[in-house]
Design a binder for these strands. Sequence first.
DNA 1: AATGAATGAGGGTTCATTCAT
DNA 2: CATGAATGAACCCTCATTCAT
Lengths: 186, 186, 186, 186
Amino acid sequence: MRADARRNRDRVLEAARAVFAERGASASTEEIAAKAGVGIGTVFRHFPTKEVLLEAILLDRVAKISAEARRLTTAPDPGAALLALVKHMVEQGATKRMYINALADAGLDSLGSRVGQSTVGREMVDELGALLARAQVAGAIRHDIGVTELIALVVGVSRAAEYTAWDGGVLARTLEVVIDGLRARG
Amino acid sequence: MRADARRNRDRVLEAARAVFAERGASASTEEIAAKAGVGIGTVFRHFPTKEVLLEAILLDRVAKISAEARRLTTAPDPGAALLALVKHMVEQGATKRMYINALADAGLDSLGSRVGQSTVGREMVDELGALLARAQVAGAIRHDIGVTELIALVVGVSRAAEYTAWDGGVLARTLEVVIDGLRARG
Amino acid sequence: MRADARRNRDRVLEAARAVFAERGASASTEEIAAKAGVGIGTVFRHFPTKEVLLEAILLDRVAKISAEARRLTTAPDPGAALLALVKHMVEQGATKRMYINALADAGLDSLGSRVGQSTVGREMVDELGALLARAQVAGAIRHDIGVTELIALVVGVSRAAEYTAWDGGVLARTLEVVIDGLRARG
Amino acid sequence: MRADARRNRDRVLEAARAVFAERGASASTEEIAAKAGVGIGTVFRHFPTKEVLLEAILLDRVAKISAEARRLTTAPDPGAALLALVKHMVEQGATKRMYINALADAGLDSLGSRVGQSTVGREMVDELGALLARAQVAGAIRHDIGVTELIALVVGVSRAAEYTAWDGGVLARTLEVVIDGLRARG
DNA sequence: AATGAATGAGGGTTCATTCAT
DNA sequence: CATGAATGAACCCTCATTCAT
């Protein structure tokens, strides 16, 4: 791919990330083009559909979580690692609703969930599942939940936090409740 | 207000509740009018803006929660009462995103949150606060959280459940984790 | 239907007829709206799709031919009647390509031909067929052709005449050749 | 012109012929470039406008008819030769609307008809005219028509046949009518 | 007061044409 | 010269809102 094309593609992606995060998925493609400083046609050249653009962003996010989960698989204390990852995901995603939607979609098999059906989506679920299983074996996390519930909780807290008006303290305390709920009972 | 006007207003509200719950806030006003069996002009006569119509529904929901919380204030076991209310709210709201948005807004003071600034919104927060305080005094609920965190958790779990593809079991287990997290530690 | 709605609908139809005739089916809906003196939304209220609008015009034309053919069924000299109808159709349609397309479509059963599959389309074919059969029985028209060929010829001459630059004389002489070809040989 | 440039030009022409024949003049330039195996820029280098590209193809077709007519000028039976040419043109053109439009344009002097004003266009008209005159002198063709009418008839039948759904039989019978109409009356 | 027709800005998408690589 | 990325006007269509009936 040509250098200028690559640069524009990246600009569009970056702009889309920002705009979708701020306005939700119903933000206009025109606004994204404007923010990226390119013509509307350029957006559609790189992403033939608005949906494709959304997907590209989401898959990117999901891939990052996946990578992080994989890295943590070999951590000495799997329980602490998992809880840290949960914290990280929530804090990262707190103001970025798209990010969270990607996660939510990945937890789904249903039709209509492109992310859930994608390879990278399934990989992320697998990685998280492995990490969770190890944490449960280590006795750190309760045994009556699976990846789906884990993802649901991360998504939930993140969604709740979407309203940026809730300051960091609220988010931290809310997260604490969830994390305590996840721990295995003595 | 004339009797027929009153009747039409109510019909519109009911239709809007149903349509918004099913399709989300982006549902068209035309569909609501059709479902209510009135002309679109009638909808706009009673609610000069789509936003106003949404608000009316939300305030109504909030008022209902408020009433329920008030009723539970005198319950013998405040801890159990609160947890039951949380469960109820989540289950109610699980498939009705509008309902949940009302809750979320009520937890906010921020500009832009009409519900949060409304009288009925503040009342609901107060009622929930009172119930929470009693449950904490009774030793059932941890002391490091306030109403805001409580609402955040309800909103969060509900939002996570918005994807109806997550079956009831997932919702139940997710809720269980949160409720366990809310309990005071022995 | 309200009087104003009816009036606007008619205006749109009339404008569409003119614009499509002049520019072909690829003319823009916007231009039609402008010519009709209404907003673009009005066009789409009455005809939810560009295709529907086209169809409405075509079916109207076809219905008119149908009616004329039916009237001629009882003419004393069916041969002369048919040839007159052919002449009339060509002269009418000479500058109106949409009109002719409707005819062409009606001669088709194929998928994609909405007119050909419509009731009014089939009726027209039936009427023309009856008239043709009578003219053949009367010995005025050769026996080795059917309605399809008849329509093909009308469409053909009309299409040839679409270029308005060909003056009336050319059209008349061309038509004469075809009509002579249609006659039964002594 | 460099050899590779020449080769690309030819490839584009060939691709354009195929694509326009299949999709009509509204086919996209991009598709032509793809089929030719060149970049879109190359198409526009050789043909600065889509219209120019169309014209180039049409002129080529017209030149071919011209050549064929010239060859037939010395045929022993000019009447049969002309009717055969008519048949040939129609059958050739039946599925290639572009080809036919070239013919139609050539029959025109009018403004807007680039083909009609081109040298090769005029030449074709002259050749056809000569052939027709000879056929009339030989007593095979009626005397009350000229080249313009002849072209009109070919164009007409071809246009009528554009709808490929009309099978070969219909086309043959329609053509027969026209050819009979063209013959001189005993 | 009720109706629903009219409006037009805005949204996603296409494509001929230009121009940097 | 060739390439294909960039551009933006234009297209079809939707929907909140206004206003004549």
